[in-house]
Design a protein around this nucleic acid. Structure first.
Lengths: 341, 341
DNA sequence: TTGTATGCGTTATCAT
DNA sequence: ATGATAACGCATACAA
């Protein structure tokens, strides 16, 4: 298909290319109603489609947003298999497309950072999911680019952040267990890093315990990686070596499902013998057997908010760097927590 | 950050911009080893990053691949929540990035098709997942663009296609049930459309039945939509109204999980009372309780193949339009099928 | 082997 | 209000 250019349109309409450009970009008061008509007519007839590369070259706006998500440990694939990321991305894409933007979805290769991509493509902005090493953020700052960080506790004024109240979430989950009469409550989680999402949830867990006058037992926290496999391992461990544990708070639904599996394999039933509560409310949470009780964080909706936030930062609508935007959390009671009362 | 251009590099290296461009694009025998050295040196020092928009303008190559996946029924979001798509996309992205390409992931708005996007962004190629209406493909053909269709039975010479032997898959699943002594075997599936993936699986189902001398009973096929919810509905129906059904072949793991839930809710156990087999081997299949027996189709690997295939079509390595590439299928026996023998 | 000059499609500046 | 025209950054045909 041969390309129809702005020049073709201008000739057809009998005006200059500048005029066409004006109506294309809706420059108010620069063109007479009459030319607008003619130009629009010509555009229709010729089926003109603007070239974004040329646009990008001419005015440094690409209508392209970079979305970065973590990769698997071997760096070979995106972590999109994790429903958390894929659901979040859904929310982002919907909002972006609706606003006339496109999304370049990618991971970052260690070694060369994201700066390259950002410059190569003239990105208008970026949304970063996951946690990376310090140098990555430093680099990001150099490119003066509107950026939205997801679930980050890095409070740098250069970035916008969309988060949740993780401490509260951890508290909510643990309290729910306590309210159902549980006292031996394990925490199964990924590595607890300083100022990380998980640390906050861990803090919430401890707060709920303390508030209820329960003893915090470090042996009851199982800390390794945020995977189904580790959950399974921990579940087995709990079943065999910790008879006093009657409930588990897993800081991610994936882990929770693993815990359930581990428990089952060791002959324990959920919630008959041990109760389990997750975190995230992934779409698969409702599909598990029994359906998983968990903490909902409206993932797709947050994706949409992130995109909205970025878009506002791009056209300067938004204030410089507002406080992190926190979406509300809520408990979703399904079938994996049994009342001991 | 101010942009470093090819001109800056040329000045720094004391050569022409053409020379720089040559070494950038590895034009063999056009430049002396000496200039190569100098240019590379300058590039390093200035941290030069090429502008892909400019490149795209100059030679019509964007290093951009469009990846299209279906949207939810209300058109509001990508179907990326479906693990099949997200896993497939993982495979695509990995291969693409490794080859220096980026991926624009999006759905298609009904009304305006994909032609716009393709032209606007000067896409080098596209990978299309899912089934769309005829007009969509017609449009695609107009843009003379290398295209890979996934799981399509549209045999048009303009497209490459990466598929699986769906008929065989349906056969494999059903035979497994039969080999375990089942004779009342239901099929739970999305709409069976002519020349669609599901029809082939359906055909495989019937072939296995016939081969075993079993009567095909149209009342045993539950046909509506490929969702967990419909599976649940069908599971309930089966539990209450079809006592002679002892096994279910669901044409997707998501549906299979739904069936299990429906069965459970009606007081039936899986596989105690009813056996279930799925299709796809999504990563969540192994996480279900009990873990789902299913037909594996190496999803991520297929994504990678699709990308590879597209890349070859782009640089003309590949033959015109070869026969569809079919990846092998395999049965994954886990815990949802019980032997009746 | 190297450099000059032109074009790619668009926007923006400046006259008119 | 409208129209020439110069950027934008890069690749390439052609000249040297």
């Amino acid at each position: 298909m041969k390309r129809v250019t702005i020049r073709d349109v201008s000739e057809r309409a009998g005006v200059s290319t500048a005029a066409v450009s004006y109506v294309l970009n809706g420059r108010e008061g620069k063109v007479s109603p009459d030319t607008i008509k003619k130009v629009q007519q010509a555009i229709k007839e010729l089926n003109y489609i603007p070239d974004f590369s040329a646009r990008s070259l001419a005015n440094n706006k690409s209508k392209l947003i970079g979305v970065v998500i973590p990769q698997t440990e071997d760096q070979s694939q995106l972590l999109l298999q994790n429903p958390f990321y894929s659901e979040f991305v859904c929310g982002i894409e919907a909002k972006l497309r609706q606003a006339g933007y496109h999304m370049i979805l990618s991971g970052v290769d260690k070694g060369d950072g994201y700066l390259d991509t950002s410059m190569q493509r003239n990105l208008d902005g970026a949304i970063i999911l996951g946690i990376y090493q310090e140098s990555f953020y430093e680099e990001l700052k150099k490119v003066e680019l509107p950026i939205v960080l997801i679930d980050s506790y890095i409070h740098d004024r250069s970035f916008n952040v969309i988060g949740i109240d993780d401490e509260e979430g951890g508290y909510l989950a643990t309290r729910h267990l306590i309210e159902n009469g549980h006292t031996g409550i394990a925490l199964v989680t990924g590595m607890i890093r300083k100022d990380g999402v998980i640390e906050k949830r861990f803090l919430g867990y401890k707060r709920a315990l303390k508030e209820a006058g329960l003893f915090y037992n470090a042996d009851h926290v199982f800390e390794s990686s945020v995977t189904f496999e580790y959950g399974e391992e921990a579940g087995g461990l709990i079943a065999r070596q910790f008879p006093d544990i009657t409930a588990v708070f897993a800081t991610s639904d994936m882990v929770a499902l693993g815990v359930m599996r581990g428990l089952n394999e060791a002959g324990r039933s959920v919630p008959g013998d041990v109760s389990v509560i997750g975190f995230d409310d992934l779409s698969i949470a409702r599909m598990s057997n029994p359906p998983l009780t968990t903490v909902n964080q409206r993932i797709a909706e947050r994706g949409s908010m992130a995109a909205q936030c970025l878009l506002e930062a791009i056209d300067g609508t938004a204030e410089a760097s507002p406080a992190p935007i926190l979406t509300p959390l809520s408990l979703v009671v399904r079938g994996t927590v049994r009342s001991l009362r």
